[in-house]
Design a protein around this nucleic acid. Structure first.
Lengths: 231, 231
DNA sequence: GCATGATATAACTATTTGGTTACAAGTTGG
DNA sequence: CCAACTTGTAACCAAATAGTTATATCATGC
């Protein structure tokens, strides 16, 4: 017997209390997409801030202004949620890269654009760096189980290969440059500077995050990248 | 009343059981230094493998073949133990650097030596990379509270500055090169390649850790470093 | 207009966790 | 040789944790 049925057939003291409680009916308006998105966003913050082991499922539910039941409903368990966060975060950078038009202008300009885009994306999305650090701590255990992430990266390599090929054709770049090495160089210089800025600024007693320093390091990345591929 | 006292004054069934149990007296030989060192080593592995939040105090005690009581006795609490691990790990690389003789031969040779040393230390000590990643996740919260780590780094910067100054004097290196930027470049290229190798080899479907690949990347670091400072 | 499935809440549970306590036994200085 | 201190073991505890259950209510296809 449900509360509603009871209300219709009986008129006990308990039913009256129930009624009083329900006077302000808590406005439980539904919004599956929003709930799903809120959980994902909250989980991204929590996992980025505390790592997988340090993240608290209760904290995620609270931050998403929902409860654990919904979280388990949409994502299965803590690991499933973590993987969803990882996939969404990778998708964000790879999708943003697609708006880059590397075939524009000359190859040097294209390389500069890719390097600066990567640097700026890292700057704008510190959670991406934190999640990668966490995932590598776990030897990419979860990422390896993703069927989506594997396919996400061909576009980047294709575009980068294209730029290198055109640069080689004009005699601007060396022949036989490995695109993955080039990307690793760009990513390494940006990733390390930002992801390790807290320990670095502590041990070297120097602030690394002033706007001038950040701009200068961006240009350093461009210069290093071009230096490594120029003929 | 202690068990020994009871044994001397009484002859109950319980006392006999106690005696039987004590026949093989468990050889509880003491060794404070060893216990301390074992805990530190076990904690290094555990924190490196699981991060601060994911590390389990029980697991550390078990791995050290001791128990939690000793761990709390020597290190206060989980945070104190973590900080001790961090300090010991930093001390290891900075002490090893002191055996480098960068003033030897010419400046280019010195820079090459520093870059390769750093790369090889990262290779030989993956736990250093993991701990740094973890500590940066926490915004260097614990490292900032260390009074020891702050003083550890002057030697490195002094040595590096010396090499740069001598290179500048011979006209080999550009003038006004910032030693910290040079070190960041060396560390970034090595750190990222190794610490992120699991996600990188997953998304690019390429093995990065063959001996040939590692040697090649070491030479890449040297080449990039020199390219960034040569006149 | 109502049966059905999806979405939501909150209380609950078994287990794990960091940390503590009681006590035993080795070590050492006087 | 023994009192005081250090090093060790194991059982214990309160709080926190991931995951579940009971139940209710919204939304929608028929």
């Amino acid at each position: 017997m449900t509360a509603r049925e009871r209300q219709g057939t009986e008129n006990t003291a308990q039913a009256e209390i129930d009624e009083v409680v329900r006077v302000r009916p808590k406005k439980v308006s539904r919004n599956p997409q929003k709930t799903h998105a809120m959980i994902l966003e909250a989980a991204t913050e929590e996992f980025a801030a505390h790592g997988f082991g340090g993240a608290r499922v209760d904290a995620i539910a609270a931050r998403a202004q929902t409860n654990k039941r919904m979280l388990y409903h949409y994502f299965g368990d803590k690991e499933g949620l973590y993987l969803a966060v990882l996939e969404a975060t990778y998708a964000a950078i790879r999708n943003a890269e697609k708006h880059l038009d590397l075939a524009r202008r000359d190859p040097e300009e294209g390389m500069r654009e890719l390097a600066l885009f990567t640097w700026r994306h890292f700057l704008a999305h510190p959670e991406f760096l934190s999640l990668l650090a966490t995932e590598n701590l776990h030897h990419a255990h979860y990422l390896k189980r993703s069927d989506k992430v594997l396919a996400m990266h061909s576009h980047l390599i294709d575009e980068l290969s294209g730029v290198l090929r055109r640069g080689e054709a004009t005699g601007m770049f060396r022949a036989g440059v490995d695109p993955i090495s080039v990307y690793l160089t760009i990513a390494a210089l940006g990733f390390f500077y930002l992801s390790n800025r807290h320990t670095l600024s502590t041990i070297f007693a120097r602030k690394l995050t002033s706007q001038d320093s950040l701009n200068a390091w961006g240009e350093h990345i461009v210069a290093m990248t071009l230096a490594s591929i120029r003929a």
